[in-house]
Design a binder for these strands. Structure first.
Lengths: 200, 200
DNA sequence: AACCTCAACGTACCACCGGTATGTGGTCGC
DNA sequence: GCGACCACATACCGGTGGTACGTTGAGGTT
């Protein structure tokens, strides 16, 4: 119904999002001009402002795309079969993997909170990666695998810990070794929380 | 030796840093214009560019000031007497308190990694808050209070967990309750790490 | 005392960037 | 075939970071 011969509109929109994604990842939000984006997408600023209300809206579109790709990878792992504990550990490993992608790291972790504002970033994250982490923590608690802790705060802290771990890996001189250290440390922390609940 | 009648130079420099600190905290880096800063400091852009190489250098001066004030508060706690464990827990509580200050939250946690670049931020943090966290982790390990884990990675992850906890507190509808939850959760995690080492 | 020097600014100006207002070509319904 | 409208392109504006240059006045030198 809503199509001419081909949907050129959607393709230019996608081209803009793709170009923005690349440039934001490489140079950051502030250092990327709209001229550079439209040049890369082979269109003009008229097209950009036809599809988006401004630079920030374009950023959020790129943000959505990165997040959507991320949860697509994570959902398979977390919704698989096995115990709540095993699925949680698999999810943690998978999320660290996601955090290693430059686009996710720069756009979602670093720039989104300042570009979108922390409150809005927090709200958006409810439906994306953080939502999965939170659900995982809830299932761990309800399954009695870890202590009964405040879900919201525990999820936030785990979320921050995982991001920091991923950043450490990405910035380390020897990423392979760093990845092993992160996995070891996170595993130890989670194991500690698990063991802590056993004597009760 | 290097002074005229009074050191007017240093006072204008300090006025610029103070004004920048206030405005960056309130409106953020990007939304704060140099005109607004020099107007608030009662000087002109000529003075600003005489003392600083640009907007980013001015930000870093503000960053330094906030961080210096922060470690001044933390050093007392961490260097106090008592067991390594007690000092570590006191330090964690103190750091959460520091993270509640708007200036620290906005400038150090949120904007600095973006404005200065993550690599440079990481390097600077070595001499500030992260340096203390790292030292604390080292003392805990060498005192045999927690498992023998990779220091660098463990400190990074703890640092990220604390930052995330502090952000959660600041953004929560009931900060008092959130602060209690964060302390409880972090304590539980640390206790798990401690207990995990006992049977060995 | 006349002169020079240099720090410590102030003033004027430029290039660039985000955003807006307006123009234009192709296409679909009628 | 003609108005209407979508999907852009073009031209332009205000603000901002940064720069070039001018000015002032307190030491030092002779």
């Amino acid at each position: 119904m809503r199509s001419r011969r081909v949907d050129y509109s959607e393709s230019t929109r996608q081209a803009l999002v793709d170009s923005a994604l690349q440039l934001f990842t490489k140079r950051g939000y502030a250092a990327t001009s709209l001229d550079a984006i439209v040049k890369s997408a082979r269109v003009t600023k008229g097209a950009l402002y036809h599809h988006f209300s401004g630079k920030q809206a374009l950023f959020e579109a790129a943000f959505d795309q990165v997040e959507t790709a991320a949860i697509a990878k994570l959902a398979n792992v977390v919704d698989g079969d096995g115990s709540a504990w095993d699925r949680a550990m698999a999810g943690i490993n998978a999320y660290v993997g996601v955090c290693l992608e430059p686009a996710y790291q720069r756009i979602v972790i670093h720039e989104a909170p300042v570009v979108m504002g922390w409150e809005r970033w927090r709200e958006a994250e409810e439906h994306f990666s953080y939502g999965l982490v939170r659900a995982t923590v809830e299932s761990l608690i309800s399954a009695g695998e870890i202590e009964k802790l405040p879900v919201e705060v525990t999820a936030r802290i785990l979320f921050g810990a995982l991001s920091a771990g991923a950043e450490t890996i990405a910035g380390a001189p020897d990423p392979k070794k760093a990845a092993g250290d992160v996995t070891k440390t996170i595993t130890a922390v989670m194991a500690g929380m698990r063991r802590a609940t056993l004597p009760t």
